[in-house]
């Protein structure tokens, strides 16, 4: 290092120390933030691989962040599988493009591959502990609650099935539908919740009874299954995201969801990638989404925020643990147990 450069470096270092000290004195709790913000601004941009719908959430969130920090968010939208494939291939080729990625199940396997950074912002401490990875690799941004949903023209409101046993009524034969793929928002997710609430033996016996109802299985996303119910092709979808029913019902669609006990809860989690090209901007963005400000964007999009202080627009959507119970499955549990649930589904329903 030349003499001049060393002097510039020393000055910059001193200046940043002073800045830090001032920041620390004025806002003790925000000390880390100031350094992070400065480093993030220097990077100027970040790339976010997301499973969130662009016009509902990805774009508003990116715009809010850009407005606040002046850091550009490049988002790429794909479903969980594709996000996982991209991160996996980029990581293996040591050419990581993504700084931040989200999804419901991909994180667990990418963690095993060593492609997820072990980093969480301080603001996660205010969240319920089941929403934060104990090992420190991910934090949930929002919840999905999976319940049955039904067409209110084909099944009159008030007469809808309220319990698992109700679904065995012969009048529903051939009118039930679910997603047949290996996903938590598909038949295996329903299998999981039945096993969790009834136990292995009773649960399996129940599923055998349910198989007699000729449940139609579609290899499409849960959202499309619900759309078929709205269109009237089937009366009841067994395992849908309950906020989807609310979003559609708000537009006037003849659909509602059933708070069947217990429901399956799935976390949409977010992480910073290992070897991210813009690690600080990525971290700042993650922190932003978890902050109260970020959580309000989820709320505005009719999603279920994880922040206890940001209630969802429709309060009944969120399980309260008393009247509406939910079995939560972490990404790790889903990753581990999915093959078993799928196996059981295949052997009983195919």
């Amino acid at each position: 290092m030349s003499h001049g450069a060393a002097r510039v470096f020393a000055r910059a270092w001193l200046a940043s120390l002073c800045l830090l000290a001032v920041a620390a004195l004025s806002h003790p709790a925000r000390a880390a933030d100031a350094a992070l913000i400065a480093a993030a601004k220097k990077e100027g941009q970040l790339t976010w691989y997301t499973t969130q719908i662009i016009n509902q959430f990805a774009r508003p969130a990116a715009e809010a962040f850009e407005k606040k920090y002046g850091i550009k968010v490049n988002y790429v939208r794909a479903n969980s599988n594709e996000v996982a494939l991209r991160v996996l291939n980029e990581g293996r080729a040591r050419n990581m493009q993504a700084d931040v990625f989200d999804g419901t199940t991909a994180t667990a396997s990418l963690k095993k591959e060593g492609l997820v950074a072990k980093w969480l912002p301080d603001n996660v401490s205010r969240l319920p502990k089941e929403y934060v990875d104990q090992e420190g690799y991910w934090v949930a941004t929002n919840l999905y609650v999976l319940t049955p949903g039904y067409n209110t023209e084909l099944v009159k409101k008030g007469s809808e099935p309220r319990t698992f046993q109700d679904l065995l009524d012969p009048k529903y034969k051939g009118k039930l539908v679910w997603n047949s793929t290996s996903s938590s928002s598909a038949a295996p997710g329903f299998v999981a919740v039945v096993l969790a609430s009834m136990g292995e033996e009773k649960g399996t016996a129940y599923l055998r009874e349910l198989a007699k109802q000729n449940v139609a299985g579609l290899a499409v996303a849960a959202r499309q299954v619900l759309d078929q119910v709205i269109a009237g092709e089937y009366a009841i979808a067994l395992n849908i995201f309950n906020n989807h029913a609310v979003i559609s019902a708000a537009k006037g669609a003849p659909v509602d969801w059933i708070p069947m006990q217990p429901a399956l809860g799935v976390l949409s989690v977010i992480s910073v990638t290992k070897d991210a090209p813009h690690p600080n901007a990525g971290r700042l963005f993650l922190e932003f989404l978890i902050s109260e400000e970020g959580q309000k964007i989820y709320r505005a999009a009719d999603y279920l925020p994880v922040d206890p202080n940001v209630p969802p627009k429709d309060l009944s959507l969120r399980p309260d643990g008393e009247k509406f119970k939910v079995v939560f499955k972490t990404p790790e549990e889903i990753d581990r147990e999915m093959p078993r649930w799928t196996q059981l589904y295949q052997s009983i329903f195919r």
């Binding site: 996982a84 047949s180 579609l218 999915m338 093959p339 799928t342």
Partner: peptide
Amino acid sequence: LPGRVHVLTTDIYDLMHRTMPPDI
């Protein structure tokens, strides 16, 4: 699939998506 007609592509889709990331 709603008529319970399975073909190779729907089977392979199932097989591929049983693990995360998809089993290419």
